[in-house]
């Protein structure tokens, strides 16, 4: 099996402003297929904005983002970039699964219906096979018995695991996690991290924004520290978390750990 030599995600000099506020300052980053990348950084450092740019919930002011071999959001034709039509952007997004801090399950649908919604409506799969696969996914995240529950009748940790299953049902090549455990009670964090660990072990490419340093240390292939919209330091977990070179990384880690 030959892997594509090019990175699965390539972010090139991305800039993003919100009005006068400079949210991303020339961010460049490559993520290889099968890699698990953890992004850490203080609140407001641009971590969420970067994830949102990767799956086109936000549009960079300049720079380029390549996902799964395609330039996101644009078509290159004769030296010019043409903005893609909406349905093309929707198609590109399918390569990426996203898990939100606040779960964002569809409240009017059961756990099972949440998971089959994308396969049925977007991929045009037939119902029987979509349901069968959704049940497998529910079992995989440990919720085989909760298929008929509405989100309102699931705990936060269970909702987040359904959200992960919903994203996986689209067969993404890349999974984005934006602080997936930050909205959870402490005793529910472990069950979500366990699912993510299993996913990482299965070879899924993952970009995880997290404050769970123990998770980053154990699961990440690489850790990136962001501050004020820029990548300050990147390297192995042992290096970035254990022996940070940059003063700003050191300051952040000592503030978080103490």
């Amino acid at each position: 099996m030959s892997r594509d030599a090019r990175p699965l995600v390539s972010i090139v000099s991305v800039e993003k402003h919100f009005g006068a506020f400079h949210a991303l300052r020339g961010v460049s980053l490559d993520v290889a297929e099968g890699e698990v990348l953890c992004i850490i950084g203080a609140s407001g450092s641009g971590k969420t904005t970067l994830l949102r740019c990767i799956n086109q919930l936000a549009v960079p002011d300049s720079g380029a983002i390549w996902v799964a071999g395609e330039l996101t959001g644009y078509r290159l034709a004769g030296e010019r970039l043409h903005r893609l039509p909406e349905h093309e952007i929707a198609r590109q997004r399918r390569a990426t699964g996203m898990v939100f801090q606040r779960f964002n399950l569809f409240p009017h649908m059961t756990a099972l219906e949440n998971i089959i919604e994308g396969p049925l409506q977007v991929l045009g799969r037939d119902r029987a096979s979509a349901v069968a696969e959704a049940k497998e996914l529910l079992a995989r995240v440990g919720l085989a018995d909760k298929a008929g529950n509405y989100p309102a009748n699931l705990s936060g940790g269970q909702q987040q695991r359904v959200a992960i299953a919903r994203a996986l049902a689209m067969h993404p090549q890349l999974m984005l996690f934006d602080e997936p455990t930050s909205a959870l009670d402490p005793e529910l964090v472990g069950e979500v991290l366990a699912v993510m660990k299993e996913l990482a072990a299965s070879g899924m490419t993952m970009i995880v924004v997290t404050h769970e340093l123990a998770f980053a240390r154990e699961v990440a292939d690489r850790v990136v520290f962001m501050d004020h919209g820029a990548i300050v330091e990147a390297g192995s977990p042992a290096q970035v978390l254990g022996a940070p070179k940059e003063a700003r990384t050191q300051a952040f880690l000592s503030a978080v750990i103490s």
Partner: peptide, 17 residues
């Protein structure tokens, strides 16, 4: 909630869907 629009987009839905 705006998160519902985003979750729908994130699974590849078009605006009308």
């Amino acid at each position: 909630d705006i998160g519902q629009y985003e979750a729908a987009k994130a699974i590849g839905m078009t605006r009308l869907t």
